[in-house]
Nucleic acid binder design. Structure first.
Lengths: 226, 226
DNA sequence: TAGATTGTTAATCGATTAACAATC
DNA sequence: TAGATTGTTAATCGATTAACAATC
């Protein structure tokens, strides 16, 4: 894989900028300054300018993204981001695990909007209510290798229970998958050429829980004082 | 809110350690070294020791967590983490939005396992299949203020479409909610005393898309050479 | 021109890694 | 005692913020 200099942190924010710019374009906004965008997103304008600068260096882009005194041209910047992030290319994605979380991902609009399409869905259980959805093909997990290899699927989402995640990962990697979004609450081991992103739903909630319990102990403390 | 010195990055890893320790305890493991834990989690042993050290300083804990030459006593460390993260306290959470994502969250086992219970569910649509689930109370969004105020609910999950998210946030904050896990793909503005965590499902996928398109352009490059 | 805002460098801040004495 | 592993400080690395000249 090419060594990109761009960090995950910056990449995540670029994704956020992308989505915001898209909405701005829909609303026929021509220019947006880093200050305005920052207010919309709760990010400092310094940070936004710096991220876009780093990104421009990363893709070795000649011209400036913005116009001094005016801001960034929405459609122009959007197009560059779209191209570099590989969006709206109609990428076909496999989903393994069609339980309630998998079902939610299938009907999650945000993926489709950016051209990332869950097309092949695998589960051990064939009798699911979500089966008759348009544009999606349902298969048994037995067929993963066959279908993914044949269709050269490179990206997959794991939405199976934690204890099945590593087995599933092994199978899809064997079938040629190189990019995995892992919703199973466990670490999975893959070869060097494969990239995994963990999307762990409970981590965020645990973080909040920490602050809640701190808040409460503070309240107790205040009460004890008064 | 008390100024905690612990960073979000560390906090997230503590949540990961917690879950791992829980599994180790179930498997009757007495001691685990930072090296072994690191191998399970794909995190360096240095990082783990340092995180636990920072955490210990943060909670002003006298005694060492680990035993030199042996590692960390699983149950002991688990108990400390549990207490400090406020887990297994049977916290009652409100969920606003019972669409397919909301439905998936309701049946997501990981939350329950750590004592974070989605108890009050609100939606504009009363005719949902998920309605007849045990231990959960369904209400119309009209009743948010009444129910949350009465039951002093402090934590809530937003799983409504992006354009409704800010309105929902305003209502639940008004009703006394102080901690929000936001699944809507948009930034929401809240007062200073309220904490929001964004759980944005498409950001991770966009990140992968970036690497996919880089990989492909590299392949094209190699092909062009040969 | 005056005002606004970018691009970019330098300064600061925070997080990770390295190293090793302490000690089980 | 020898081997292992923690606790903790110092060194390094990376990310954010500040600052301001360039320029629309």
């Amino acid at each position: 894989m090419r060594e990109t200099t761009i960090s995950n942190t910056v990449l995540e924010r670029l994704a956020i900028y992308y989505r915001s710019l898209k909405r701005l374009e829909e609303n026929k906004v021509d220019y947006i300054s880093s200050k305005e965008l920052g207010e919309i997103l709760g990010i400092s304008s310094d940070q936004i300018r710096r991220d876009l600068y780093d990104f421009r260096m990363d893709i070795s882009y000649y011209h400036d993204f913005g116009v001094r005194g005016r801001g960034y041209p929405v459609s122009y910047l959007l197009k560059i981001l779209e191209k570099s992030l590989g969006l709206n290319n109609n990428v076909e994605i496999a989903l393994i695990g069609a339980g309630s979380l998998g079902g939610a991902l299938i009907s999650y609009d945000e993926f489709k909007k950016i051209g990332l399409n869950i097309k092949y869905v695998f589960d051990i259980n064939f009798n699911k209510a979500i089966r008759d959805l348009a544009g999606i093909e349902f298969y048994d997990v037995e067929q993963i290798d066959e279908i993914l290899t044949k269709n050269q699927v490179k990206m997959a989402i794991i939405a199976v229970p934690a204890k099945a995640a590593q087995d599933v990962a092994d199978i899809i990697v064997e079938a040629g998958v190189e990019l995995i979004l892992n919703f199973a609450p466990t670490y999975i081991e893959v070869p060097n050429n494969v990239m995994v992103r963990n999307e762990d739903l409970s981590i965020g909630l645990i973080g909040l829980s920490y602050y809640l319990s701190n808040k409460e102990s503070e309240l107790t403390f205040v009460k004890n004082l008064g």
